[in-house]
Design a protein around this nucleic acid. Structure first.
Length: 295
DNA sequence: TTCCAGGGGTAGA
DNA sequence: TCTACCCATGGA
C-alpha cells in the first residue's frame, strides 16, 4: 500500500518529527538516516500494521507492506493527516514571528506543527505520563503500557500498537500499578474506563468548534490533568492560548528576562502574553531553539 | 540517605 | 482564586 498526502505549506516532515518527545515513545519510531517516521498502528477493524512515512513532494508518502482495502486506506489517510497536522495553516503565527529575532527562523524551517497521536486519548495518556517524573520515567511507563497491553504486530510480535481505552480499562489497576505508573494509576484507570464506556468523548475535542477555554475547562475536570497537562494537551489539539508552565518554562523565562532569578507562573504568562492565541507555540519553539542550540 | 524530576490534589483562607 | 502542604516512583 502506498499513498501520497499533501500539506499546507510550508512543511517539513522532520520539523514535525523533532518538534517534541513523542517520536521517542512507542509505537512511534524514526530512522534519522532515511528520514522515515514509523508507527505500529491498530486499525479500527483490529488489524495491526506498520506505517512508514517519508517526505515527498508537497507532503508525505505513506507506505505499508500489506495491501489495504478502501476503508483502511481512508482511515490511514485520516490518521496520518491528523498526526502530522498536514492541514494546519500557521501563516498568522509566522507573520508575528518575523518581528521577533528569536523566532525569525521558524518559517524557513517550517517549525510549528507538533507530532501527535492518531487519537486524543493516546495523546492525553502520554501527557499524563509526563507529569511529575523524568523523561526516562515517561519512556519506561509508555513502553510498559504498549508492550504489555497493545496488540502485537503480526510480522514482528515484539512490537505493539498503543492499547485502546478498552484494553487499558480491562487490564485493571493492579496491572497498571505493576507497570510502575505510581500515583498515576488511578487517574489512568478512571480515564480509560470513562472513554471505553462512552461516558467521556475525548475525540470530539478535536473539532475546533468549541472554544479552547471550554476544552481547557473540560480537561481540568479529568483526574490527573492539572494546569500544565491541560495546556500541553490543548497544544496537541492545535489550540495555543494556554501556556504549559513547567520547570523548563520557568527556567527559560528566568534566564531570558529576569537575570536567572526564580519566576512564577505569572511572569511566564507575562513574558508571552503579547503572542495572544499563538503564545504556547511562541514559547515552545523559543524553548526548542534554546534546547537544540545548546546541544 | 537525601533530593529531585518538564506537577497534581486538597484543605483552608 | 491563591497558597501551603503532601503526595507516588525511580534514579542520581
Amino acid at each position: 500500500m502506498r499513498l501520497h498526502l499533501s500539506a499546507c505549506p510550508p512543511f517539513s516532515l522532520w520539523a514535525v518529527v523533532e518538534s517534541h518527545g513523542w517520536v521517542y515513545l512507542p509505537p512511534f519510531a524514526a530512522d534519522a538516516q532515511t528520514r522515515t517516521l514509523t508507527r505500529v498502528e491498530r486499525l479500527e477493524n483490529g488489524r495491526v500494521i506498520e506505517l512508514f512515512i517519508s517526505e515527498a513532494g508537497d507532503g508525505v508518502t505513506v507506505t505499508a507492506r500489506e495491501p489495504l482495502n478502501g476503508p483502511e486506506r481512508e482511515e490511514v489517510s485520516r490518521k496520518v493527516w491528523w498526526m502530522l497536522g498536514l492541514g494546519e495553516d500557521l501563516r498568522p503565527f509566522y507573520e508575528l514571528a518575523r518581528g521577533e529575532p528569536a523566532l525569525a527562523h521558524v518559517e524557513a524551517q517550517a517549525l510549528g506543527r507538533l507530532l501527535r497521536c492518531p487519537t486524543f486519548f493516546e495523546d492525553l495518556v502520554k501527557t499524563i505520563l509526563t507529569t511529575n517524573t523524568t523523561w526516562a520515567g515517561t519512556v519506561r511507563m509508555v513502553s510498559a503500557l504498549t508492550s504489555r497491553l497493545g496488540d502485537p504486530l503480526p510480522t514482528d510480535p515484539s512490537r505493539n500498537a498503543f492499547p485502546t481505552a478498552a484494553q487499558i480499562a480491562r487490564a485493571g489497576e493492579d496491572a497498571l500499578q505493576a507497570m510502575g505508573l505510581g500515583y498515576r494509576t488511578s487517574a489512568l484507570a478512571a480515564l480509560a474506563r470513562q472513554v471505553a464506556d462512552g461516558a467521556l468523548d475525548l475525540e470530539s475535542m478535536k473539532d475546533n468548534n468549541r472554544s479552547s477555554a471550554d476544552i481547557y475547562h473540560r480537561l481540568r475536570q479529568i483526574k490527573g490533568v492539572g494546569e500544565y497537562a491541560a495546556a500541553m494537551a490543548l497544544m496537541l489539539l492545535g489550540c495555543y492560548d494556554y501556556l504549559p508552565v513547567d520547570a523548563w518554562a520557568r527556567k527559560l523565562v528566568a534566564r531570558q528576562w529576569h537575570g536567572d532569578q526564580p519566576v512564577g507562573p505569572r511572569q511566564v504568562e507575562a513574558a508571552f502574553a503579547r503572542w495572544g492565541r499563538w503564545k504556547a507555540l511562541a514559547y515552545w519553539f523559543w524553548e526548542w531553539e534554546e534546547e537544540t542550540s545548546a546541544v
